[in-house]
Design a protein around this nucleic acid. Structure first.
Lengths: 115, 115
DNA sequence: AGTCAATATCGACAGATGTCGATGTGGTGA
DNA sequence: TCACCACATCGACATCTGTCGATATTGACT
């Protein structure tokens, strides 16, 4: 739907139309979405979701990546709040932060919702 | 189960545990999520959602970016199917592909859902 | 034709990002 | 204490990505 008072005929550009700029800082949201945008990390989330709580050492093989790399991705996911770290003794177990992922999904859907 | 070292008491790592690997190719999904993961592109989607159909020329100012850069982001969004291009004469109008964004959001939520 | 305006594309550049090997850290158990 | 294991961090590297100016391309209107 067109906006502004200077809407001309149909299908014409309207420069001064003051686009609605919510100025809502979606940088944090974008950052979390970006973290999920990596195939490897998305795969990790999928594996965690399917297995509940998984030891980091069990991720290297299915992912086909080195231990430092897996650790790096787990760090990104954890810092984004999409995954929860649970260290037990020598091992580190990870699980999906269901609520956070759900919130993110809902925020994304909300983006496209007409205001 | 030959007790081996795997699968012991509670809270212990279980290496041979055959993680559920759906092998579902989430590369395409990751790619679309990645496109949305950029703050500028997310902002574009937000603006389009709020204004319906917007001319590309009206995006440069609110975004504070050059015309080639805006064009580049619009291309990414369009190729990802998150936005629809509608060229009228000299201008190019864009609008959010509501259904696609909704699908993406729902797919993301589905990721965290325990199988 | 010719000119102007809006977009798209190209080429180049700086900065971010994923990856690895090597090394550090901390807990477990002989 | 020592060795071993899982994990985190570091340093380096190649690649990807966002950005811009310059240059096409396309459409509209004399």
């Amino acid at each position: 739907m067109t906006v502004g008072e200077n809407l001309l005929a149909d299908g014409v550009c309207m420069p001064g139309a003051e686009l609605t700029v919510p100025a809502e800082d979606l940088a944090p949201l974008a950052a979390r979405v970006k973290v999920l945008g990596d195939p490897t990390r998305m795969r990790i989330v999928q594996i965690l979701a399917a297995n509940g709580s998984v030891c980091a050492c069990d991720l290297e093989e299915p992912l086909g990546l080195s231990q430092p790399t897996v650790s790096h991705h787990l760090r990104q996911l954890t810092e984004a709040g999409l995954v929860v770290r649970d260290k037990r003794g020598t091992w580190a177990f990870f699980r999906v932060a269901d609520a956070e992922v759900a919130d993110l999904a809902s925020a994304v859907r909300g983006l496209a919702a007409r205001s």
